[in-house]
Design a protein around this nucleic acid. Structure first.
Lengths: 169, 169
DNA sequence: GCAACTGCTTTTGAAATGAAAGCAGTTTTC
DNA sequence: GAAAACTGCTTTCATTTCAAAAGCAGTTGC
């Protein structure tokens, strides 16, 4: 067993798992963007390079943050799934988004989801987590999944409005 | 103005500020350990090296996460203070600690504070934040500060008990 | 007067990062 | 049924960041 941890502090150990510039963005794209494949994740807003993405995916699988399975519809495709550990990061994502929105120079279209997560509060987070458990762990969900679709629709509304404003101006 | 951000996403921008292996640990030591001086911060559990600490402190001051003032009692000492931005990370710290405690191999003595923060919930976090605002921003506080002292006492109790168990065994 | 302490800086080697190209196989398209 | 597009990566190489150790010009306490 490799016990080369800097300390047993829970915050430190958390940072050892996802305390870098890319891991949380990959998880963000899986949670909020519904991305499951390598090539999808490669098309992030921030432009991760393929070697870094490959490295992080391998590490996240090793750490139990993701699982990797074959895609039955395509022999070369791999499907990455969230685990309970990663789904449990939803509240942290919501807080991080809210904090960034309050204190940093965010763009409107990329922060609308954070705004909705913030106003939705823990109830919304719980529904979202159930939705993710259904999608990634195969757990039953009563009622249709709506949270990610709602966030995505809001995002597209902002884009559409901004495009329109651009045309008018 | 330097606008070399990877994207305007609030999560990404947050990570650009403190998404590395050390920044949050420095902030943790200031919040939970009450550390205000360079040499105190250098004695972290994880053993940060002095050049990295100097670099991160400079960056955190530049980003508005900390302020730096002269210590009136010692011409060579600098005092680092939290800002509202950083105090607002208390709930995120609490969530991170709770997550780490649940999913990672934390040590008992270093996770007792996280446990108390978790059971205390948002009410405790708010009181702690008020306490930090008093200490770092000079805002008035009604009643004596107790949260950090309580957390610290619990930590020392665990240490004392473990030492005793070691002696007995 | 001297030892200990102050917040750093410098040096040096190792490790991580990032852009670009490439690759062997699979699937789609026409 | 051949060509083009797509699959999840890997390789290469230049640049940046990190980390350990030592050092430094002052300041303070005894």
């Amino acid at each position: 067993m490799k016990d080369d941890h800097r300390s047993g502090c829970p915050i430190n150990l958390s940072l050892e798992v996802f305390g870098d510039k890319w891991s949380l963005l990959i998880i963000r794209d899986m949670i909020f963007g519904g991305k499951r494949h390598f090539r999808e994740l490669l098309r992030s807003q921030e432009g991760i390079s393929s070697n870094i993405l490959a490295d992080r995916l391998k590490m996240l699988v090793d750490e139990g943050m993701l699982t990797k399975t074959d895609d039955p519809t395509h022999k070369q495709k791999a499907i990455y799934s969230l685990t309970e550990m990663t789904i449990a990061l939803v509240p942290i994502m919501a807080h991080l988004g809210a904090w960034g929105r309050r204190y940093l120079a965010v763009s409107e279209e990329l922060s609308i989801r954070a705004e909705l997560m913030e106003t939705g509060g823990p109830d919304l987070w719980d529904r979202f987590m159930d939705e993710l458990r259904c999608e990634h762990l195969g757990l039953p969900l009563d009622g249709p999944p709506r949270v990610r679709a709602t966030l995505q629709a809001a995002y597209e509304d902002v884009i559409a409005r901004k495009t329109l404003e651009g045309v008018v101006a």
